[in-house]
């Protein structure tokens, strides 16, 4: 049986525990022996992303100590994965840190590339989905083709997985891979621009009349949901893991 450590990003821990639960249950359904190290806190991205590297040091080192011994570390977050894999340099270099950078997978990657699972027979989802993939996932982790690279083949790992859920439909909307405006601390330091980007993203999606908005990054959804609720839009927001695990609307 394959063992994997589950990393639950701080904002999922606090605001969206159901996404953590769905991730855990989904991995268990797929026969993974999931370990949840209870000393875990955060990957340090919020501080490093703000330019505060010194302030990210202790957190990153703690993260490496907690997770550095696992062969697979899985997290339902493209941006945390991108940080740990590609930008994990605030803390001291150590074998744990190097292992963690190498062994951390976004949940989508882990399902798509490691477990290579394509079918989710326990789930059905008879709804139209507007799928948003984060910039960290697209341009940082290559989880979907990038609109700027016009000669590349078009693909999307989250879409490939969701397509394994019977009944699901996808709606096409304009500017599909334009940033939603979250951008970590950007969402607060440039709140006016961030909110406008979020409103615009919602407007493009709205035109396509989806039943729900889905992403593999809860941070984008936290931002978009905040924009939607302010505009009195009641559309549901779901993490990909929830649908793959069989959630119903």
């Amino acid at each position: 049986m394959m063992e994997a450590a589950l990393m639950i990003p701080c904002y999922i821990d606090v605001f969206y525990p159901q996404v953590g639960i769905a991730t855990l249950e989904l991995l268990e359904r797929l026969g993974v022996d999931v370990v949840y190290p209870k000393e875990q806190t955060c990957c340090g991205q919020p501080m490093a992303n703000s330019g505060c590297y010194q302030e990210a040091k202790a957190t990153e080192e703690h993260c490496a100590n907690v997770f550095g011994s696992f062969e697979y570390v899985v997290t339902p977050s493209g941006s945390c994965t991108h940080h740990i894999r590609n930008k994990f340099t605030a803390g001291a270099d150590s074998p744990e840190r190097q292992r963690l950078s190498k062994n951390t997978y976004d949940l989508i990657e882990f399902l798509h590339d490691v477990l290579k699972v394509r079918e989710f027979p326990w789930a059905t989802f008879e709804h139209k989905v507007a799928l948003h993939t984060s910039c960290s996932a697209i341009r940082g982790l290559n989880m979907a083709s990038m609109s700027e690279r016009v000669h590349d083949a078009v693909f999307s790992k989250p879409k490939a997985l969701l397509s394994g859920v019977p009944g699901i439909q996808f709606v096409d909307f304009d500017r599909v891979d334009e940033c939603c405006g979250f951008g970590g601390t950007f969402s607060v330091t440039e709140e006016a621009v961030a909110a406008k980007m979020g409103y615009d993203k919602l407007a493009f999606m709205h035109k396509a009349s989806p039943d729900c908005i889905v992403s593999s990054d809860m941070s984008c959804l936290m931002h978009l949901q905040g924009c939607a609720r302010r505009q009195k839009q009641e559309i549901p927001f779901l993490h990909v893991a929830e649908i793959l695990n069989g959630v119903s609307l």
Partner: peptide
């Protein structure tokens, strides 16, 4: 509260994932 100027603030869950797990 710059977040809340144009967006609603997410509500913290009654139970964090960590507590749920415990």
């Amino acid at each position: 509260n710059a977040w809340g100027k144009h967006r609603d603030v997410p509500e913290a869950a009654l139970e964090t994932f960590h507590q749920w797990y415990k």
